[in-house]
Design a protein around this nucleic acid. Structure first.
Lengths: 240, 240
DNA sequence: GCACGGTTGTTACGGATCGTTACGCAGCGT
DNA sequence: ACGCTGCGTAACGATCCGTAACAACCGTGC
């Protein structure tokens, strides 16, 4: 559905089995000899899982774009991460009987289901996998910490700049242009993730546009002055 | 040095080998048959490790109190967690060649060094350990996410209330009184952790005192109305 | 094609919160 | 006693929020 706009169609990866997890490649081909890997397709807006459902698997994003939402008991809600191809989803719920948050597709997506207890058993026969999985979890922690640092120390405008740089870098890693991309989420989701209000995000984007750091047209982002953005967000802080 | 004040000397755990990690007990006795577990003592103010040093081990806090500080390239600094007995330190650096942050003792402490590659190998012979370690990492992620949620949605006063509740609960888990304890860190560290300025923390504490939720005398905290604190911080949000 | 309502994004203005700055005081080690 | 560090208070100002009104876009149905 969502037209893919302004993305050079040159993914370095082109359909093979060897995908990049956050902290290194997980060999899905080899893994699939030990555990049953199911492919699930999600339409934009559909949930991969919801908080409270029985935990039975983690997922590798194969295509599309997802968000994870944490909900507190008193109803406060927050987007805690965005996930794209090659990244893991569901690791935050490992060790629990039920998933700890919601995961929603923001675009038509495909995720590969890695049933969890089986993955652990597979680790015993694939020490490599064990090390990769642990490293991926640790990287997740570092990633969260980097954002905690950002949320605690940066102003609204700086956070938005940092967010754009993060998106740009992740697009780049997937072989897409880091200078022109389409945001898959609305202002409200960005705001939630950055601990701001959606109007503030809009204002910041407008201001960055006025400063000619970027060009914004709704969800279409053109990065004109990446260096300027970096200066703003705190010096080459690529956020890990 | 720091006198231990106002803590009922009734740790449920009293020196045995079976410690509670964040997500469950890690059997150190059994582990020590596979890897060399060294005990390190730290005086208040000393570093367990610094960002940039070669990563070679994670640590289990056996006694004392520590903080972990993340530093960004442009010099912004933030306290990203506080650790007490039974909790793991250093997991955020797994998978890296060098530690990713500083860890500083805020009180005289003892930490047990678990050399890292060896721990992974031990997992192959102790499936239990593998599962525990992964679960501990996942719990760490949930913990960070819960705080991200708090920092993104709560006001200064609410954050301070949530912080106090978190400290109270952790003291309780160690068998100490959750209603009367001593903060081991200064206002600046609290402020850094909560994404505030130390004056704001002071104001919030003073206000909570005036509202008779707590009684503050420097680092000495008395919780008078835990329910009030909870209401304030967002309904029973024990923040894990 | 065109009118329509609903959703999402933008902008302006007043107000609350928190940061900034400054100063005073208590505790502690030298 | 002295200075140092950490903590508390207050006045001021900047940032961000809250509200509201408007504009752009989308899908729908006519």
């Amino acid at each position: 559905m969502n037209a893919i706009v302004a993305q050079t169609p040159v993914p370095a990866y082109a359909g093979g089995q060897r995908l990049m997890a956050s902290a290194g490649p997980i060999d899905v081909e080899q893994l699939s000899r030990h555990v049953q890997v199911a492919r699930r397709k999600l339409a934009s807006g559909q949930h991969a899982y919801r908080a409270g459902q029985p935990f039975h698997a983690i997922y590798l994003v194969h295509a599309g774009f997802l968000k994870t939402c944490d909900l507190s008991e008193d109803g406060r809600e927050r987007v805690t991460s965005f996930r794209m191809r090659g990244e893991l989803v569901g690791v935050e719920s490992i060790g629990l009987a039920h998933y700890a948050c919601d995961v929603v597709a923001l675009d038509d997506s495909e995720i590969w289901e890695l049933p969890y207890p089986p993955v652990l058993h597979a680790c015993l026969q694939m020490p490599e996998l064990q090390s990769r999985l642990t490293a991926a979890l640790a990287e997740e922690i570092r990633n969260d910490r980097a954002w905690m640092l950002a949320l605690g120390t940066l102003t609204a405008e700086q956070r938005v700049a940092a967010f754009l740089l993060d998106m740009a870098e992740r697009h780049l890693r997937l072989g897409f242009s880091p200078r022109h991309f389409l945001l898959r989420m609305g202002r409200a989701d960005i705001a939630s993730f950055l601990g701001l209000k959606h109007e503030t995000v809009t204002r910041a984007l407008s201001r960055l546009d006025r400063l000619e750091c970027i060009e914004v047209r709704r969800r279409d982002i053109c990065v004109l002055d990446a260096e300027g953005l970096r200066r703003m967000a705190g010096q080459g802080a690529t956020l890990h």
